[in-house]
Design a protein around this nucleic acid. Sequence first.
DNA 1: TTGACAACATACCGAGTAGTATGTTCCCTT
DNA 2: AAGGGAACATACTACTCGGTATGTTGTCAA
Lengths: 233, 233
Amino acid sequence: MGAAHTQVMEKADAGAPAARGAPEILQAAAHCFKENGFAATSIDDVARALGATKGMVYHHHRSKTDLFFAVYRRGMELNEAAISPYLQEPDALTRLARMGFAHAMVLMAEQPFQRVLAQGVAMHQTGSTTAAQRETLLELIEIRKHYERMFREAIEAVVIAHHLTIGSISVATKSFLAVLNSSVFWYSPQPDESTAEQRSIAADQLLYALRGLGLTISAGDPIQKLIEQEKMS
Amino acid sequence: MGAAHTQVMEKADAGAPAARGAPEILQAAAHCFKENGFAATSIDDVARALGATKGMVYHHHRSKTDLFFAVYRRGMELNEAAISPYLQEPDALTRLARMGFAHAMVLMAEQPFQRVLAQGVAMHQTGSTTAAQRETLLELIEIRKHYERMFREAIEAVVIAHHLTIGSISVATKSFLAVLNSSVFWYSPQPDESTAEQRSIAADQLLYALRGLGLTISAGDPIQKLIEQEKMS
DNA sequence: TTGACAACATACCGAGTAGTATGTTCCCTT
DNA sequence: AAGGGAACATACTACTCGGTATGTTGTCAA
């Protein structure tokens, strides 16, 4: 399955002049999918964004749907890589806070991929054509559920440690992620700007998301200090 | 502009046997757009869902984009109608709570239209083709902004009345609505079920959204009682 | 009765596109 | 040096779909 990709990536040197190679395809595809959505994006669009042709794209991906799935998978990998350093944090609240901040940050940093993730969620309600694709889709859904489960468990730990009373863990988890994800729909990164604004937004979102669970966070709180610290760098 | 529609609606009697007429077109279109998205939905799909033909759809709507806009507009009307009874509520917190609950409820009750609203937001980043459509789109964006502004002002009033400290009003408003809107992405209404489950979800979401602002809501709180009351009917 | 018009249905066109089949170039192994 | 395969580019096909042009039916006013 992934053999072709592996071979390709071994050959491709990172600093290719014309931005070619398999990783660049995903980048360009994510960009196009973000701009126009899956259905309205043609393979020629992706190729044009690469300065290449349709044949090149089809050489690396069997179908348009497979390309979309590859982008989706890459997006999830980016997310998991962003939060994985904090999964071992011993203190429950600190762990959740760091995970949430990292999630909010990678969301704004990798907007195109995150948009694809949002589309993918809406897609699995639709019927994906072939049977093999259906299977791949289920696998991707599983990856996403696993990701959400990590947040859910972190939230559960905080709820227990701090004796919080919430309506439903499920709704709370969905709400928590909804707050952090919301920037996908309205935030557009300014070119040639540092990450200061993004950190500020992420901090505000995290504060809101944590309070939503029932935590009382005021100035001087240790968790408030942690947020401020993340905000400053 | 809307003259043709008006004439049509005058003729159409509400209980038409075959579910025809202009309002039914919007219903069917919303359903199709929800299932497959704007780009992947053909006019023939909408017509088939109606038991009619493409000619009928084009008799009522100039183009596919115009049809989408009409659905969008109808969705916003449903939302505004849902929250309008509570805009005059004197107590700030009660007002925001009632507005929020009504919003969460209409979102689950009118899922197809709400999905279209979500798509429309993502659409105005894209380039809508013609100039006249661009103008209509700007008008729809304005309607949406007006709707969000009502929530923002309600939130501001609560922040002032309860001396809350939040990071940014803008982010707080986006987060508040993100929580209430999130059900669009994961909730599917069970057929032949009462609204009990929907009210339960809406209550949980509202609790989370209000707490996110920094409100401390515990059992026995007046606002908690209000939520419980909405939940029970 | 008869036009005139609304409310559709039917037939058709042209543009765009997913996917394929086939060429071409270049590198790497033997 | 030679042959083979990877990594593309080019050319082409089959098909879908937005939009239009035209036909058909019912209704209502004069």
